[in-house]
């Protein structure tokens, strides 16, 4: 084998080596209506959304894989952004980082699998879904719906009266400073809520613990339910509410003067029914085996 043949073989072998994946750094821009709808979807990586005072959508994207494609479709009323992966990579082995600026009043919808989502300053309606990524956003006056399977979901209120809904299968579902309605659901995840003067509050768990600190108004309606998770419900004084608390086999504790009583005359379990202060608000709590504690401190 002479040198020429050796060089030819080496060149052929070099040509057969797949090239290293080159990252794609892309940017897109569109002028839109102040309340345009913005849909974002990403499999793996991150989605960071911030609001600004321009009627424009600006996207900066870093796709780790040169096989991924960025789809950006824009009209005045709607912008659709998707990271499209090759079919064999639908589990997201390469990340895509999307950094997005949208009008403050835009409606936002984000769907991810393993990508974290953070949203700041968006006042329009938000629908955020992640399978295993963490999601964090702020609530203003328009509804916020956040759903995860295993990721944590956090919604922080900013003084508005948004109706907030958080649902997580196994992650932490946390809401703070919510002044509108709140609906929280978990299976095994923990549910933590600090609600300021909301009217409709619903907290629901299978085995995860529920921890809620609430400021009630005369119109507040609270529904809490758990199968085996413990419920700790703390109300900011002064407390004016009617309480209806029931558990099949869990213990019921109260910091108020009323004490739980056995329901053996009517069936099984124990219950605690009383009116604190002038009433007005209503609190209904029930569990199968989870312990329940109701306090004002």
């Amino acid at each position: 084998m002479n040198i020429r043949i050796s060089l030819v073989i080496a060149a052929v072998l070099l040509a057969a080596v797949p090239p290293a994946q080159a990252a794609q750094n892309l940017s897109r821009h569109a002028t839109v209506a102040p309340n345009a709808k913005v849909d974002v979807s990403n499999v793996a990586g991150r989605v960071d959304v911030t609001a600004w005072d321009r009627n424009e959508v600006e996207l900066t994207a870093m796709l780790e894989s040169d096989k991924d494609q960025l789809e950006f479709e824009a009209s005045e009323q709607q912008v659709s952004i998707e990271v499209i992966k090759p079919h064999h990579d639908d589990r997201g082995s390469s990340d895509a980082v999307l950094t997005l600026k949208i009008p403050r009043g835009a409606k936002l919808s984000a769907e991810t699998v393993s990508a974290d989502v953070t949203v700041a300053g968006v006042k329009g309606e938000q629908r955020l879904n992640a399978v295993s990524g963490d999601v964090r956003t702020e609530a203003y006056d328009e509804p916020v719906t956040l759903e995860t399977v295993s990721g944590d979901g956090t919604v922080v209120g900013t003084g508005g009266k948004a109706a907030v809904s958080i649902s997580s299968i196994s992650g932490l579902a946390e809401a703070r400073g919510i002044r509108g309605g709140f609906d929280g659901e978990v299976v095994s995840g923990k549910l933590k809520a600090e609600i300021a003067a909301a009217e409709a509050i619903s907290l629901d768990s299978v085995s995860g613990d529920i921890e809620a600190r609430v400021e009630l108004t005369p119109d507040s309606r609270v529904e809490m339910e758990s199968v085996s998770g413990a419920i700790a419900f703390t109300i900011k004084p002064p407390v004016n509410a009617e309480f209806d608390v029931e558990s099949f086999s869990g213990q019921i504790d109260s910091c108020f003067s009323a004490k739980a009583r056995d329901r053996s005359r009517h069936g099984s379990g124990s219950e605690l029914n009383f009116t604190q202060g002038s009433g007005g608000a209503s609190v209904h709590i029930e569990s199968m085996s989870g312990d329940i504690k109701v306090c004002d401190r």
């Binding site: 997201g92 393993s114 295993s132 295993s150 196994s170 299978v206 199968v227 099949f248 099984s268 199968m288």
Partner: peptide
Amino acid sequence: PPETREIVAKNLAIIQHAADEIDAA
């Protein structure tokens, strides 16, 4: 993703356990 499958399976088992407890009650 495999880790999500595991979490889903674990939570279905939790729901099953809850259903069993309620049925017994």
